[in-house]
Design a binder for these strands. Structure first.
Lengths: 122, 122
DNA sequence: CCCAAACTTAACCGTTTGGTTGAGCATTTG
DNA sequence: CAAATGCTCAACCAAACGGTTAAGTTTGGG
């Protein structure tokens, strides 16, 4: 029932990141804020399924959603990743992020590096 | 794209990190290698449950297990976190890790890890 | 050898997850 | 107002998850 209340913020963030569809959504939102329908478009699942994913991401704090008219805009909230990042860094032989690996990864993951494509920082 | 293979590795790492018991296990292993029975001791679940958790962590590459005699030693493999860390950093408004938050977090997370369970070897 | 220790595996169970379809609500448009 | 658009909710389903207990396997020791 109220199982959600038990979950720590960290639980919710990691749980949200487990699903590859949700990670892909976050990558998409890295480029721009998007409406729910547009988020759903590239995926081979129903709009309702994407709506659920967006709820999960919202509850994890990874995105925010703002309704303007009948359109609900989704915006990346990268700050929510900080605690999880900090947690992971505590295991770090790797101190900070290896920038080479970072760029290689971005090329593979996003196709184009987001060095200039940040969602306007608010 | 070959990104698929990477993504499923990420899947496994994030899925493994979702469970708070498994994160606690990783924190314990941060201090020392441990036998399965000793890993299980502070938890209120069966040994079989912990054994399953350790299998999940192993398959995610987050730990390795080496059998010496009848004892299976568990060792942290923090390198497996690098890809996930890199992925998260790609969303980083937050540049590097906030060291204050890091230390505060460690105190909270590691403050009650067992220290009576060290293997004799090193 | 035989038993205990240290794990793992198998079978099972309730809950959660991710998906579906269809109905419903709010808003914009005609 | 009516209809279309944008999105969520409800009901349902199969599969995965995390837990259990019980049995099995391997290793070490009296």
């Amino acid at each position: 029932m109220a199982a959600d209340a038990d979950l720590s913020a960290l639980d919710r963030v990691f749980a949200a990141l487990t699903d590859p569809t949700r990670r892909a959504i976050l990558s998409m939102l890295l480029e721009d804020d998007m409406a729910v329908t547009d988020v759903a478009e590239p995926f081979d699942v129903s709009l309702a399924a994407i709506s659920k994913h967006l709820t999960v991401l919202t509850q994890a704090g990874l995105i925010s959603q703002e309704k303007r008219g009948r359109v609900k805009w989704c915006k990346l909230e990268p700050d929510a990743l900080r605690d999880a990042s900090v947690w992971m860094q505590s295991f770090g032989q790797f101190e900070a992020v290896n920038l080479d690996a970072f760029e290689a990864f971005l090329e593979k993951e996003l196709g184009d590096a987001p060095d200039d494509t940040r969602p306007s920082g608010g």
